[in-house]
Design a protein around this nucleic acid. Sequence first.
DNA 1: ACATTAATTGTGT
DNA 2: ACACAATTAATGT
Length: 206
Amino acid sequence: MKDFNALNHIFEEALLKEINQHGTEISFMADDIITDYQDQIKGVPIILDGAIKVMREDFNDGEMIMYFLTKYDTCALTLQCCMSKAKSEVKAVAETNGKLIMVPISFVQEWMKKYETWRNYIIKNYDKRLKEMLNTIDSIAFMKLDQRLLHYLNEKVYVNESKSLDITHQKIAEDLNTSRVVISRLLKTLENKGIIKQERSIIKLM
DNA sequence: ACATTAATTGTGT
DNA sequence: ACACAATTAATGT
């Protein structure tokens, strides 16, 4: 059997066996597009390693980050799409290199009936995603951009497991759907406050 | 090693 | 938001 170590604690034997049998292990590299808008959903991913950024596209041209998926997460929206056989409403881009298991839709539904641990896993993930969404909504609706930026940076530190972020002001602006100049200015003030340090294409959280 | 270009960041209006 | 200056990295000769 493959190395699903940590999954052993979550799922029972029989289910692990089925995952092993029917799931496809897929490796991805940073910046790979995992799922694009309008893509037909083929299965539900379980992240084994690395992180994935889930984005939402706006009516005109803006894109914005919704949340990150990390180890042992699955994507609630994908589930939702599966059930209704809909096309993807979001774009998923690899944040880091990593691995995931893709489980075909048919099994996802079957396992809901067969395995208690699977149901729990799915429900817990729904819960987690919803909470993150609320956070994100709060940060858009109520927080000033500087707080939102900090929130973003902290999330990024968490999913990359590094205090040193390799990213340009432009990329950040795209993720937050704002302009580069604004980000540059905010980062400058954060730097002056000693919250971060900057080098070219690098931001270090203190 | 040097010049040229492109990419990234800083600042003023 | 826009324009431009300043700085740094990448590439070719």
